[in-house]
Computed example of a mutant assay.
Amino acid sequence: MTHTRTKAAAPTSTTRELRLPALEIQQGRGRRLYTFAMDGKLVPEIATVSRVRRDEDALLHGYQRPEVLAHVAAIRKYIESDASPLLPNAIVIAFDERVRFEAAPSASDSPDYVRTGTLIIPVVDGADLDRPGFIVDGQQRSAAIRDANVDAFPVSISAFITNETADQRSQFILVNSTKSLPKGLIHELLPGASGALPTPLRVRQLPATLLEGLNFNDRSPLNRMIQTPTNPSGVIKDNSVLRMLETSLSDGALYRFRNDEALPNTGYMLTALFNFWTAVAAVFPDAWNKPPRKSRLMHGAGIISMGYMMDAITHVRDQGDGIVEVEEYTADLKSIADDCHWTDGEWTFSDGVIRRWNDIQNTPRDIKRVADFLQVRYRNR
């Protein structure tokens, strides 16, 4: 769950209804899209923005990023100009089931996938979350129209009706995935998305779910340490963790729990991850939970290289009958601890190359160099 809106609630503070001419368009398997026009100044009366955030229990709420003030100001200036402003793109709104459609008599020659009629939208006085709609796309345009010094500005609206926040979130991801939406926000929203997603997003959904568990489960040694839109103070870049997870899911320690013919066993995956990173924290306490500029263990090169170590140790330790325990990971990591220089000193690699600890960069070459070096040391011992 993401926000605590009551399903199809009928608030007592409703004062009036908007009745707007609309088209109902049937798409896919029984999905209906509503297209209509209204004064953009009235949009805030029927729809609000669901800001992405986490509550005290680390549950994710909402899906929208904050307003980009410079973008809003630029659109507002355009709307107020004498340049005959035109905003052709529709604002997308997800309504709850308080909104209803009354169909008009259909003409005999009308396509069977479209009906004309009236969309009836309650206008609610009170808190923003009492509004029947959430803006899925177009929050910057809506804010600019709201603030613009004009009497009215009609806009096109595309809407759908659902009480499921996961459905709203999926549509938000789909609408914005080809735009300059921060990847971190998409990754944070993916675990709670539902329905059909494009293959590239579907592939990322499982790593994003594991990242959420690592970052917001109280049992996790990485609790609140991964930087995301709702946890900006984290010291580890979310993309580094995702790359580590994707590699292990592909052919490493987490692969055996994927269960490609059914649902992946995320519980076992998280237990394995918790065990390994608990061991890492115990073996390298001086490098743990520090900014990457002070510890290359928390740097992309360190996170991804240690992910390869998790895969290597698991391959040696796991005989297919259970999870590798913290003590086992700890013992094996201690065997290569003296070869690691996360916070000071120099790395002396097998090919004779010597690099200062803070010269290691988050590049494929440096990651491979560190990962290969540590795995060779481990296997030799």
Rank of each mutant, 00 (worst) to 15 (best):
T165I: 06
Q27V: 14
P66Q: 12
D286G: 03
S142P: 09
G252V: 01
P191W: 05
L206N: 00
I226C: 06
V175M: 13
Q140H: 15
P191H: 01
S13N: 13
E67V: 12
H315S: 02
I121H: 10
K41F: 12
G302K: 02
G322Q: 02
E327F: 06
V136I: 15
W347K: 08
V49P: 07
T48K: 04
G213E: 04
S335A: 09
I135D: 00
L59K: 14
Q205W: 11
N259C: 09
A58T: 14
D96Y: 13
A196Y: 11
P85C: 03
K7M: 14
E17T: 08
A287P: 03
L214Q: 08
F276I: 02
I236P: 11
I145A: 05
V316N: 04
E97N: 04
L333G: 00
A143R: 12
S240Q: 06
S81R: 02
P122N: 07
L87T: 08
S106K: 11
D238S: 10
P232F: 11
H187G: 07
I91P: 01
F172V: 09
V353K: 11
A127R: 15
A73R: 12
S81H: 07
R98Y: 08
D321S: 15
R256E: 09
M38L: 14
R115C: 06
Y63E: 10
L245N: 04
I367A: 03
T4P: 11
N275Y: 10
D238H: 12
Y329P: 01
S81K: 11
I157F: 01
R31Q: 12
D218G: 11
S13I: 06
T48S: 06
W288V: 05
L242P: 03
I360K: 04
Y308N: 05
E328C: 01
E246D: 08
A148N: 08
L254F: 00
P285E: 02
A287K: 00
P122M: 11
Q319N: 10
G322F: 05
S142D: 01
I161R: 02
Y268Q: 10
K179Q: 14
E327I: 03
I25K: 14
Y63L: 05
S81D: 04
H299Q: 08
E212D: 07
T228A: 07
R381E: 03
N289G: 00
R146P: 10
Y255K: 12
I46C: 02
T314K: 02
N275E: 04
V324W: 00
P132F: 06
R355W: 09
G40I: 05
T247N: 09
G234L: 11
D112Y: 10
D260M: 06
R379Y: 06
H299K: 05
R377E: 12
D137C: 12
G300I: 07
P132N: 08
M38T: 14
I236C: 13
P291C: 04
E56K: 15
L87I: 13
P85V: 06
T116G: 07
G322I: 02
S248P: 04
W277S: 05
M269S: 04
A193S: 13
K179F: 08
L23Q: 10
